[in-house]
Nucleic acid binder design. Sequence first.
DNA 1: CGTTGCTTTGACCAGAATCAACGCGTGTGG
DNA 2: CCACACGCGTTGATTCTGGTCAAAGCAACG
Lengths: 248, 248
Amino acid sequence: MPAKTLHHSLLKPLDLFRSLSDAELDQALEHAQTHRLLPGDHAFKQGESASRFFVLLHGHLKVVQNTPDGEQIIVRYVNPGDIFGIAKAMRRPDYPASVYAVKESIALSWPSSEWERLLGSNPAFAANTLQTVGQRLQDAHTRIQELSTEEVEQRIARALLRLIDQSGSKTPEGVVIDFPITRQDIAEMTGTTLHTVSRLLSNWKDRGLVQSQRKRIVVCSVDELIRLAEKSSGAPATAGAAKENLKA
Amino acid sequence: MPAKTLHHSLLKPLDLFRSLSDAELDQALEHAQTHRLLPGDHAFKQGESASRFFVLLHGHLKVVQNTPDGEQIIVRYVNPGDIFGIAKAMRRPDYPASVYAVKESIALSWPSSEWERLLGSNPAFAANTLQTVGQRLQDAHTRIQELSTEEVEQRIARALLRLIDQSGSKTPEGVVIDFPITRQDIAEMTGTTLHTVSRLLSNWKDRGLVQSQRKRIVVCSVDELIRLAEKSSGAPATAGAAKENLKA
DNA sequence: CGTTGCTTTGACCAGAATCAACGCGTGTGG
DNA sequence: CCACACGCGTTGATTCTGGTCAAAGCAACG
């Protein structure tokens, strides 16, 4: 698929490229390869040699890690504009996780060698990457904290809040997560089982907090969910964080 | 305390500085400040403005995060040669955690502004940092995986193995963790309680796996511990046997 | 239409947290 | 120098969250 048909106005707004000149952008596009992924398709798999790095243009992907004993955890969801597969940038020879499309998606990719060139040619590029990876490290620590100190209900509440914050769409009934997601997926995000997630979601449905059908979850009362997420102790609450940012 | 008394052969072997020239090293030493920390002292506290970044020369520190509801988790232990407090490098204005000495330690620090200079003056420096942060991200994901899928016994076994791997000293009885560490500390590393850690350690002591006194742990049988860490939950056959060990 | 994948629910049980109490060493201050 | 308090560790009893096992309903898809 010819990448040159893509206008570079597509890339310009992306975090990754915000430090590049127009000329550099054009050059980048020359070497890019586009990928169209259908639900279930993978961009790459855990353990493969990290030969390319990617940017998601459209759709949603999930990053999945397989444990030695056959279990899975969802590392994160990739949103449009995010980079992924940058293992080589951290001097890892192979991808530490697999990436699957959860809906139809479009991504660009470049050979990992291209990364070196960008790093060399533009000092701000390194700083941007460092910030991105730093943010992920923060997120990981937040998750460790939650897994270490919180109960399942709070963890699931927070997971949902994060999902609607990043990928929520307003609907008449509430905010819907705008890609297909199963109970099993949520279990793999929160370190629990699909049974527990199902029970909790049923419970919340009864209480009017959420609605849900197959692979689809609508949060009706964000406020109530925030209250659940912060339950346990009446500590000082920084509530409103997840309130805005929603697509119309 | 005058940093210039430090010979730069001290810094040269450090990962952080492996890409710098001798001249650059000297310049770096000019601006460095040395810190001598006694057990319990802190280098900085969570939430403080991230004005400086650090390298540990000698001793051992622990990085601690306080949760909103008053609990604590140990993010990691800092070993000699490690850098810490690099929040600003990821464009974080403040330190996300506190750092305490667990034994007498010596560290160097520089103003965060100096970081920018190093980044600009030496392209390999950025790559090194990226690798360091990338490694931490890997570690964090490993921990998430463990918290999500493994049981307490395996997690504690792994934690001990990691500790002796990074900071173990050989002794006649086995490998000792060469800094003071309490049950509570281990609990905060593994997302459990000091009670559970204590019981498990007592159990292991009875079985001859470890020895331990106050704030001191010696692993006698590393192999056995590895076996525990890798114990697959799919084999409940031996479960009964492993249970009747509490007190002879 | 049958097969497969997702979800729901109930019954049961176990791992680990919580609650409670005590022992031991160490360091401190009188 | 001794008494005592405090930090650390041990252990028991009890509770309970959430995992496991089992079965069935339902929606999608070929």
